[in-house]
Design a binder for these strands. Structure first.
Lengths: 137, 137
DNA sequence: CTTGACCCTGTAGCTGCTACAGGCTGCATA
DNA sequence: TATGCAGCCTGTAGCAGCTACAGGGTCAAG
């Protein structure tokens, strides 16, 4: 399978596949006589692992560790659990932050009744006059 | 006020302030005889506006538009409302995505009972064997 | 024999900062 | 007066994680 087909079946971008190879996340595949990359099932499945991990928000370095564990089934999986658990709590924290943010945005927008920018509550709220007494306390 | 003090009172980083000036978000301040930047109240308040907008997750380009409106109080504030409303829906979408992600992470982690990586459900779930029948459907 | 789709390498760009290197200025202290 | 140190200056490079070229080779169909 050439790179274009691998891209199609995994949903990854061709440039991204080459990028992953460059940073050592994917192994260098064999090359055809014309110097084209040639992939097999192992490559496909490894790339799927990477894409899925990335979709879940793991960083490249976390993916590297998870791949490493996946390559060494005799090791203890506690490390995988730690990585995933830490990531989960980061996701939860991010959700909480975004919820605070959403509420403040909604509050600001709710006050806009149209008209001139000079009287606009959205603009005003972004300045430091009408802003949110004690929010950082 | 010199750049260090402006940084202190606004909570922004010195490098960031110079960066904002470079990209035209903040106007070039006067310089002292020694070529030091010299800021006044207008600069402070503009920087506070920028920081607050950035804290709310607006992009630099969105901040530029909002600043522009703030500089022209005679314009219609509908644009500010549109920018903020669009941003709000992006935030809401991001929250929804992260919640899906959190649930899947929690599900994956919940299945790990320790032991060897070869038997680890976390590792397994990241591959494409046990993964997600029809999730992308 | 040409067209067009595909592949190659290498490099630069994106966002929003942050971190130097290498050099001035200004003020306090010995 | 010398010296040290904090603070300022410019310019450039780095971060994550791709993405987008430019400029070229390869291959099958018509």
């Amino acid at each position: 399978m050439k790179i274009g087909e691998l891209a199609r079946v995994t949903g990854a971008n061709i440039e991204t596949i080459r990028y992953y190879e460059r940073i050592g996340l994917l192994p260098e595949p064999h090359r055809t006589a014309a110097n084209y990359r040639s992939y097999g099932e192992a490559h496909r499945s490894r790339l799927a692992f990477v894409r899925h991990s990335r979709d879940l928000g793991f960083t490249i370095e976390e993916v590297r560790s998870l791949l490493d564990l996946s390559d060494h089934p005799e090791r203890d999986c506690g490390e995988a659990d730690r990585i995933a658990t830490r990531h989960l709590s980061q996701v939860e924290e991010k959700i909480a932050q975004l919820q605070v943010l959403r509420d403040e945005l909604a509050r600001i927008i709710g006050r806009c009744r149209g008209g001139l920018a000079g009287d606009c509550r959205v603009i005003e709220a972004l300045g430091d006059h009408g802003y949110c007494e004690g929010r950082h306390a």
